[in-house]
């Protein structure tokens, strides 16, 4: 199972699309690793600088409808090769969400007020997330402030995470 722990990147905008996550011109790359330098390159957001803000991050916290637009699985791959296996948001576009779990990664939905509280408490501070997969909680900490939030994913999604993705699961079961 992949790691869902580490430093948090806060992306304070809804409807971040997969063209912003990884522009189409990089879809000619055959290797996933080649996508690494271009993650979120076209994301236009005040105060966000992809060149400096992504390094060392392992978790993304964002708003609603993250990953809308193109079906490209290059979006989860570009996150993965940057060491990011967990995106936490208010909601996700269907294809992006499925792609994440199909890769054994996680797209975790939390209520809007919880997301608001995470932004209010932690955005702009060096924050670490620690996931208890079996217990279904994520603990966010910055300095001496800490907040543990429960999350729910379906049994099927959990199976994909533990199996490391959909291919082996499907080949074994269908």
């Amino acid at each position: 199972m992949k790691s869902f722990n580490g430093k948090v990147l806060f992306l304070d905008r809804s409807d971040i699309n997969t063209d912003e996550i990884i522009p189409a011109k990089y879809l000619t790359e055959i290797s996933r690793e080649a996508l690494a330098p271009n993650l979120l390159e076209d994301l236009k957001m005040d105060g966000f600088d992809p060149a400096n803000d992504i390094a060392g991050k392992a978790v993304v916290v964002t708003r609603a409808n993250f990953g809308c637009g193109s079906s490209r699985e290059h979006a989860p791959w570009a996150l993965e090769v940057n060491g990011i296996n967990l995106v936490v948001g208010e909601s996700f576009a269907r294809i992006f969400r499925q792609n994440m779990f199909n890769c054994g990664m996680m797209a975790v939905e939390l209520p809007a007020d919880t997301i608001d509280a995470l932004f209010a408490t932690f955005a702009g501070r060096e924050t670490t997330a620690t996931t208890d997969f079996e217990g279904g909680t994520i603990t966010f900490s910055a300095g001496d402030v800490s907040r543990t939030v429960p999350f729910k994913i379906s049994g099927f999604d959990a199976d994909l995470v533990t199996a490391g993705g959909w291919v082996e699961y499907a080949d074994a079961n269908y």
């Binding site: 490209r72 699985e73 992006f96 199909n102 959909w166 499907a170 080949d171 269908y174």
Partner: peptide, 15 residues
């Protein structure tokens, strides 16, 4: 529309 992994399983298993 689906991602590459769903496509891959579709190609392999037709589901």
């Amino acid at each position: 529309g689906v991602g590459t992994t769903d496509l891959e399983v579709g190609i392999l298993k037709g589901v």
